[in-house]
């Protein structure tokens, strides 16, 4: 199954094709954001949406702001364009971390078995028993407080690594406080998002483990770890990739939900969820200010849809057995 084969299959599938097309659109949007929505000259941070005054009342689309402005006179068009970068960054980095964590936990549990397996799976179960969003909210609030202190510590280093991967922020510098609230949200989602992958990995490895070549390798006397990496991982990893590709969309959704509740990106940051949160103040007259929900809402919907369409098709192609499972 080469990359070319997969790609050909994807193109041929109408649903996946639409997904790819949308994704391509978002990639173009993200890469050429400065072209579509030029950064104002005196701006200090391109991700802070430029604003036209301070007034609370949203302004419908007009000549200066083609998609209008939202509460606080933030330009919606600018926010949507630059928000695509935020969405990609958040989605991809969170997926990367949850997948790695899941694979690590799952493969160790499956390979060693016994009490290690028992303990790890019990921990996984505890994490799964949490009402996910609620715990993420709690953890985000706590982390915001912890990081707000700005003291050094193990947590700061992990946030720095995340900041480096997400924003390309130098490890030597202090974390930008504007980005900090995004990082705390991401950490919370990572902390409570790795369990599915761990379970799937464990299950797959257990199946593969019984295959003859693994047993053969063991009789020859190959070291445990080598067996794990040489033989087992590649065979168990494909399904995980499928899940990961589907997860990107749902992580973006979860992060948007945090932002919506006021726990994600800072006010005025180019983040779709944050932009929609303004709508909460305008519910009775939303019909008049519908642009403040519809445009950013469409952006999230199409973005997540794109990933899910592609992921769904990928699943069919890579692993027909998995049809219909999450």
């Amino acid at each position: 199954m080469t990359f070319g084969y997969v790609f050909k299959k994807l193109i041929k599938n109408p649903i996946a094709f639409i997904g790819l097309l949308l994704l391509l659109g978002f990639i173009i949007m993200a890469v050429w954001a400065p072209v579509f929505a030029p950064v104002p000259e005196n701006a200090r941070d391109p991700y802070m949406i430029p604003r036209d005054g301070f007034s609370a009342v949203p302004v419908p689309p007009n000549e200066d702001h083609i998609l209008g402005t939202t509460e606080g006179q933030y330009d919606i068009f600018y926010g949507i364009i630059w928000g695509s970068r935020t969405a990609f960054r958040i989605g991809v980095v969170i997926t990367l971390f949850t997948t790695l964590m899941g694979i690590m936990v799952g493969s160790v549990a499956a390979y060693y078995g016994g009490w290690i397996d028992e303990v790890l799976m019990r921990i996984t179960e505890i994490f799964q028993t949490f009402p996910f969003l609620l715990t993420a909210i709690t953890l985000t609030s706590v982390l915001q407080a912890v990081y707000g202190r700005g003291e050094a510590g193990a947590l700061i280093y992990s946030a720095k690594i995340l900041a480096f991967l997400t924003f390309g922020h130098s490890l030597a510098e202090k974390i930008n406080p504007i980005q900090l609230t995004i990082l705390t949200g991401m950490i919370s989602i990572i902390m409570f998002g790795w369990m599915t992958i761990a379970r799937v990995t464990r299950g797959n490895i257990l199946t593969v483990k019984n295959y003859e070549y693994a047993i053969a390798a063991e009789t020859i006397g190959a070291k445990n770890l080598r067996i794990l990496f040489r033989h087992l991982m590649p065979n168990a990893i494909f399904p995980v990739l499928v899940i990961a590709s589907m997860n990107i969309g749902s992580y973006v959704l979860t992060f948007a939900a945090l932002s919506f509740l006021g726990l994600g990106a800072q006010r005025g940051y180019a983040d779709w969820g944050q932009m929609i949160s303004f709508a909460r103040n305008w519910i009775p007259s939303l019909a008049e200010y519908s642009h403040i929900v519809i445009y950013p809402g469409m952006a999230i919907l199409l973005f997540v849809l794109a990933w899910n369409l592609v992921g769904d098709a990928l699943r069919d192609i890579l692993d027909p057995r998995m049809r219909g499972t999450k």
């Binding site: 959704l253 948007a256 919506f260 007259s285 519809i294 809402g297 999230i300 919907l301 997540v304 849809l305």
Partner: peptide, 23 residues
């Protein structure tokens, strides 16, 4: 189903309110 799976709860809720309450 994929579309339903992709729509953010809060956007959907707000859109419903927009149409069926505000409008």
């Amino acid at each position: 189903a994929i579309a339903g799976w992709s729509i953010p709860t809060f956007v959907f809720g707000l859109l419903l309110l927009l149409k069926f309450y505000s409008d």
